[in-house]
């Protein structure tokens, strides 16, 4: 095209033409939904503590319950609606991690239980485990050296 001499010029023009995400609304929804999910986590923690469980065990129970709820909502075809509304508000809490495992598992069932569900389950969440676990191992090794 002759009226846009460079790709950069066109990109600048396109950026101007394209509507931006409604960031204020997005952030507001992300804030209160994210905060609410964390408070549900806090309630679970407090109940566990009231039952006299250790902090570590309470934390694990909290994660498992939230993951279970997220899996349930995903299975009922409801989580994507929450995600569409709340964006990072439901993505960043552990619910988003669970959704990112459950949703491909459901989607790729059509490609079989081994290479479909089994393998593709980690298409979105796999990187989280790879980078999370690898970083923690590095942290552990550095701690060992410094100890």
């Amino acid at each position: 095209m002759d009226n846009f001499e460079t790709a950069k010029q066109y990109q600048t023009y396109v950026d101007k033409k394209s509507p931006n995400s409604p960031i204020v609304k997005d952030c507001f929804n992300a804030f209160w939904v994210g905060g609410l999910i964390c408070c549900i986590g806090q309630i679970i923690l407090d109940i566990c503590k009231a039952k006299g469980l250790s902090i570590d065990l309470s934390g694990t129970i909290c994660s498992v319950v939230l993951i279970g709820l997220s899996a349930l909502l995903t299975g009922l075809n409801l989580f994507n609606r929450i995600g569409k509304f709340a964006g990072a508000g439901s993505l960043i809490p552990i619910t988003g991690f669970a959704n990112s495992i459950v949703s491909p598992a459901m989607e790729y069932k059509s490609e079989g239980y081994v290479m479909g569900v089994g393998a593709k389950m980690f298409t979105v969440a796999g990187p989280v485990l790879v980078y999370g676990i690898s970083t923690s191992i590095l942290v552990g090794i550095i701690y060992f050296i410094l100890m």
Partner: peptide
């Protein structure tokens, strides 16, 4: 360094994998 991280997060990881599998069976 190799065992501690995953051990501490085992509940969450296992729950996500297991529930994911169950959901794929039903939903």
């Amino acid at each position: 360094a190799f065992t501690g991280g995953v051990k501490a997060s085992a509940g969450g990881i296992a729950a996500a994998v297991f529930f994911g599998y169950i959901a794929s069976l039903i939903a």
